[in-house]
Amino acid sequence: MKYPVQVLPVHEENSYLLSVVDLPGCQVKAPSIDEGFLLLNDAMSAHLKILVEYGEPIPKAKTIDEHMKLSTTIAPIWALLDFDIVPYLGKSHKINVTLPELLIKQIDDRVTKSSHYKTRSGFIAAACVNELAR
């Protein structure tokens, strides 16, 4: 899922504050934006693990446009962080799914050509998450 990230310079400290606005409290401070995104991946992972532990739903990501309409911050920098939430959706269960042969071939081709997807099941799970988020 692509989560909007608000990046604010902290001039007094010569650093940046990166916040995943759809996950209240999920933010990091870093000396550079690049380092901030590395730290933010770990922060999001920890944040989502806590939500899952307490049985809370994973918040749906809003668009940057939606956040810009609500933001009172003057001239923030906006970015998108593509974060795989599938591992935080709970225990996996095996199901029997029937799909057309050509569709299975297209899925398998995409999985083998992309480092983003490790398995056919992962691809299908990501597609389902994206469709449900619409």
Rank of each mutant, 00 (worst) to 15 (best):
K118H: 11
P24M: 07
L8G: 00
H93N: 11
L38Y: 09
I74G: 00
F83S: 04
I85D: 02
L48V: 06
D22T: 10
A127W: 05
E53W: 01
N14H: 14
I64N: 04
K105C: 00
A61G: 04
V129L: 06
T98S: 14
T119V: 08
L132V: 06
T119D: 01
P100Y: 01
V10Q: 08
Q27D: 01
S15C: 15
D42L: 12
Y54V: 12
R120K: 12
A43E: 14
Q6N: 02
D82P: 01
V86N: 03
D65T: 13
K49Y: 04
P24F: 10
H116Y: 12
I58M: 07
R134D: 05
D34Y: 09
T73V: 15
R134P: 00
L18K: 09
D82G: 02
E131Y: 15
L80Q: 10
A43R: 13
T72Q: 12
I64L: 06
C26Y: 01
T73P: 00
E56D: 10
L18G: 05
D22M: 03
R120S: 05
L102P: 00
R120P: 00
E131F: 13
F83Y: 14
P4Q: 05
Y54I: 09
E53Y: 12
Y16F: 15
R134Q: 11
E12H: 06
S19A: 11
Q106W: 08
A126C: 11
A125S: 14
L18W: 12
V21R: 10
D65E: 15
A133Q: 12
L39A: 07
A46V: 10
P76W: 08
S71M: 04
P87V: 11
D82Q: 10
Q6T: 10
P76Y: 10
V86E: 09
I64A: 06
I77N: 06
Q106H: 15
P4D: 03
V10R: 11
Y117C: 04
L81R: 13
D42R: 15
P9E: 05
N96P: 08
Y117A: 02
V5T: 08
A46G: 08
Q27N: 14
S45N: 11
G25S: 05
